[in-house]
């Protein structure tokens, strides 16, 4: 099988993000970058499929040369090669990224194209659907379980209150939900081998952006809590405040 996995570099989920100068992006100083956690499930699924059926896993990621460190993390998991779509900065408009990815993916003859279900930085959650549409391929999102059988596959996906099982033909686009599998640890051998793997750099033609980030604001600071010191006597007051002030019941 020939599989592509589109990955994104995101700040480590434990990072305390600060708004950067200009107010439309984050302050990148001191941030530790990782592979978007949902993308790790996508990589793992692709690796398991090629281990079972043969074939290759190609990683695709869009960004400046500095993201190659994160791409190598994916290669260290076992992906065979990678393509970096060279841009100075990851576009704010998901459509711009999707169009560039779709153009590159067209050349690859992939049986499956994986994404994480969303990136944990901007949380758009659009990329798999956009690329699927641009390539005119069946697209299955938020997948919890995947079985590939020759030219078709079945996937279980989360829907409100239950699971939906979908059958679809390949090639297709799939986005991974947490718990699709257990991503492997990067081994020392894998890390050493990743140094020798190729990251091909392509220069994508960028479409016009129709979406611009205007402002980034941190969440409002948490107000001070209220402490009730009289035990059960305060219950009625707590209920009143929860209902009238906090409006949660």
């Amino acid at each position: 099988m020939n599989i592509a996995v589109c990955i994104k570099q995101t700040p480590d989920t434990t990072t305390r993000v600060k708004v950067g100068p200009g107010g439309t992006g984050i302050d990148e100083a001191g941030i530790n970058y990782i592979i978007n956690p949902y993308d790790e499930f996508a990589i793992e699924e692709a690796l398991q499929l090629t281990e079972k059926n043969g074939g290759e896993v190609t990683l695709l990621s869009m960004g400046p040369a500095s993201i190659e460190k994160t791409i190598r993390e994916g290669l260290a998991m076992g992906a065979h090669k990678a393509i970096r779509l060279n841009v100075d900065k990851t576009p704010d408009d998901p459509t711009v990224t999707a169009k560039a990815l779709a153009e590159t993916l067209k050349n690859g003859q992939y049986d499956l194209i994986f994404f994480g279900k969303q990136a944990v930085d901007d949380d758009h959650g659009q990329m798999a659907s956009l690329v699927g549409e641009l390539l005119d391929l069946p697209t299955v999102t938020v997948v919890l379980e995947l079985h590939v059988d020759g030219g078709s596959a079945t996937a279980k996906r989360e829907v409100e209150g239950g699971l939906e099982t979908i059958r679809f033909s390949l090639p297709a686009v799939v986005s991974a939900q947490r718990n699709l599998n257990e991503p492997r640890y990067r081994s020392l051998k894998g890390i050493m081998q990743a140094k020798k793997k190729t990251i091909e750099v392509v220069e994508p033609a960028l479409a016009e952006a129709h979406l611009v980030v205007e402002k980034l604001t941190p969440p409002p600071a948490k107000g001070e809590g209220k402490i009730f010191r009289n035990g059960a006597q305060d219950a009625a007051e707590v209920v009143r405040l929860l209902r009238e002030e906090a409006k949660v019941i």
């Binding site: 460190k69 190598r72 260290a76 640890y185 990067r186 020392l188 890390i191 050493m192 990743a194 140094k195």
Partner: peptide, 14 residues
């Protein structure tokens, strides 16, 4: 180096 740091973080995570 990057790979020295990557090795450290791989073992740390485990």
């Amino acid at each position: 180096t990057d790979d020295e740091k990557m090795i450290r973080s791989a073992i740390r995570e485990w």
